[in-house]
């Protein structure tokens, strides 16, 4: 790792900090391509979902067997009110799910216009965006895995060591208390971070692509065994949606951790590669 010695002259007493070259350029590039892909895929995915806003299990779909459905009821004034039915429970989700305001008018639509790409109902264009960025996501993901294997990023930085596993319980406590490693230790991924990254790349990343392919009628001619394994095409559609929610949960936690560990330093690390550590802080 390249090191640049610096002293911060504005703080008294002077603290001994230094910039460390932490993230190499291919990783930074792939990270930001992934940010773009996930944003477009999520929003165009919600556009596609809106064309049939319900999820079923099995090979075929049936309005009576849906475990999740979004729709609208008309109230006494003739205005639609958004409702969501999940596992048989009716929830009033007006304004967000089922019915929301578009250009000042309450419209019947599952996800609101600000969350879908394109904003208005436009399935054909949503599919165009989704499949273009799905290819970019897959190529970027394969490049990342290939790069991680070749540079040993995977074995050196991401694979948990025996020591990591021993500190599993403590790491959970540290996260709950927002206590984060300082100094040199901040450069290494902790056990929860390693597991989260491996899970996102291989379980969520691999899973969402496979469940997407399981919805393709042409692919099903050769992937029938996999479709059966998850319970059918409509089950695959449900899994695709659930895994997408998993990505959203990951991103929320990821961004939260970036903020609590120093948003400026972390962003500089992922944009320029240089990350500042404080040598006076003992881990």
């Amino acid at each position: 790792m390249a090191v640049m010695e610096t002293t911060d002259e504005n703080t008294m007493p002077a603290r001994n900090t230094r910039l460390v070259y932490r993230h190499r350029w291919p990783l930074r590039l792939m990270h930001w391509i992934n940010v773009l892909c996930l944003t477009v895929l999520l929003m165009s995915g919600l556009q596609i979902f809106n064309a049939h806003p319900s999820l079923s299990l099995g090979h075929a779909s049936n309005d009576n067997t849906a475990w999740l459905a979004m729709g609208a009821r008309t109230d006494e004034n003739g205005v639609p009110r958004g409702v969501t039915r999940i596992f048989g429970h009716m929830i009033d989700t007006d304004g967000l799910l089922g019915a929301s305001t578009v250009d000042g008018e309450r419209s019947v639509r599952a996800f609101p216009a600000w969350a879908t790409l394109p904003g208005p109902q436009w399935l054909a264009m949503g599919r165009r965006w989704h499949f273009f960025f799905a290819w970019l996501f897959v190529i970027n993901g394969l490049a990342y895995v290939g790069w991680s294997v070749v540079t040993r990023h995977l074995t050196r930085d991401l694979t948990p060591t025996r020591n990591d596993w021993r500190g599993f319980g403590r790491s959970i406590l540290d996260h709950l208390k927002f206590r984060h490693p300082k100094g040199e230790a901040a450069l290494r991924y902790n056990i929860l971070q390693k597991l989260a990254y491996l899970g996102v790349v291989f379980v969520l990343g691999g899973g969402i692509v496979l469940m997407g392919l399981a919805m393709s009628p042409r692919m099903d001619a050769v992937l029938g065994w996999m479709v059966d394994l998850v319970g059918g095409r409509q089950s695959a559609r449900s899994w695709h949606f659930v895994i997408a929610c998993g990505f959203v949960v990951f991103v929320v936690i990821h961004v939260f951790e970036v903020i609590v560990t120093g948003v400026f330093n972390q962003l500089r690390g992922m944009i320029t590669g240089w990350y500042r550590i404080d040598e006076d802080d003992k881990p």
Partner: peptide, 9 residues
């Protein structure tokens, strides 16, 4: 199985 572009089967 018939798969509609909308998502149902």
């Amino acid at each position: 199985r018939h798969d509609c572009v909308e998502g149902w089967s």
